[in-house]
Design a protein around this nucleic acid. Structure first.
Lengths: 182, 182
DNA sequence: CTTACCATGTAAGGCGTTACATGATTCA
DNA sequence: TGAATCATGTAACGCCTTACATGGTAAG
């Protein structure tokens, strides 16, 4: 049971949808995947090289004009590797919210500072939620055209539902903190 | 602007509540903090040694009977360090859900396997939610006794609200996947 | 002409987990 | 007497981020 490296799997997953350059992979990470995954160039490019070495991806020259460009594709072995990983149960879902850490130790900081952290969180979430909602709307319209859209929609809906819950929690959390003050 | 190492801050935060051994710190991580933070012995013990070296914590012998035991306390410098970190804005809230990754690439795995991932997620969350609800109830009762409880409650409520949203999402996600099947 | 974006990659270093190593005590 | 829990720590290794290094193109 080789424990698959996650970064390999994400890259292969993206390549299973379409051929991509390393740069484009990073862009996908920063847009479609950013709510539940991330990776830097420093991990993407070495991983791509490694994937090619292992025969799970192939590369070809995609230079246009004078622009340097390498396009990666998934191979059949790569697709099987991806399917193998997908078939295994999920190993780890992890949430690391520094905001919650600061709230947990809020006794030391006091009510005002803790409220400020909640408000900052609230603002960040409020700003991002419309984009998630927009994404779900686009995906819902295109759902019959492309089968992959259905799966993207699942993750976007997850974002919407949790962000809405976050905002509800913010209201409640502020109320709890303000209760004894006035 | 020294960027504080988070693991130092968590440990100092826990020590700001009470004196603890390394073992007890790990226990707190695995219970009260586990929904939004984590750490292993391999990071806790070295961090404790480091904190003592830097004068942010102190240690004393707490051996009982024949049992080896070292009890750590936060120093005044440590408390100031903690306060400094608490006063700074949150740098990063991060969610890494392998479940969502597998859903995003669900096209490759198919509806049945994807449903199985959702159901596994649903079961895990369903099992944990009662503990979170129990925690909030205990904390609500004790809220007037101990000021720290109010802050713990904030994080527990976050867990309850998000887990409830997760379960709602599971129902919806299953419906989306089942829609076109028949 | 200059800013933003496209595009690839490396090196150093940090951070943290896993596995290992050891040993006492408590409870059934 | 055996399992679970208490208790501390190290070493190897893996993985990833940050910062650096470089250069072309498109748009305003």
């Amino acid at each position: 049971m080789a424990i698959e490296k996650k970064s390999d799997c994400v890259i292969l997953g993206l390549l299973s949808h379409e051929d991509l350059t390393g740069y484009e992979i990073k862009k996908r990470m920063d847009t479609a995947l950013k709510y539940f995954w991330g990776a830097s160039y420093g991990s993407i490019y070495p991983a791509l090289g490694d994937l090619v070495k292992r025969g799970l991806a192939s590369k070809r020259d995609g230079a246009e004009n004078n622009r340097n460009k390498i396009i990666y594709s998934i191979t059949e072995d790569g697709r099987n590797y991806l399917k193998g990983w997908l078939a295994n149960p999920v190993e780890k879902d992890e949430l690391r919210y520094e905001t919650l850490l600061k709230l947990f130790f809020g006794h030391e900081a006091g009510v005002e500072q803790t409220l400020a952290h909640i408000e900052a969180f609230e603002e960040k979430i409020s700003k991002e939620l419309p984009f998630l909602i927009g994404a779900t709307e686009v995906l819902k319209k295109g759902i019959s055209e492309d089968d992959t859209h259905k799966y993207y929609l699942l993750t976007a809906e997850f974002g919407v539902k949790t962000y809405q819950a976050y905002l509800e929690w913010c209201r409640e959390a502020k109320a709890i903190l303000k209760e004894e003050r006035g």
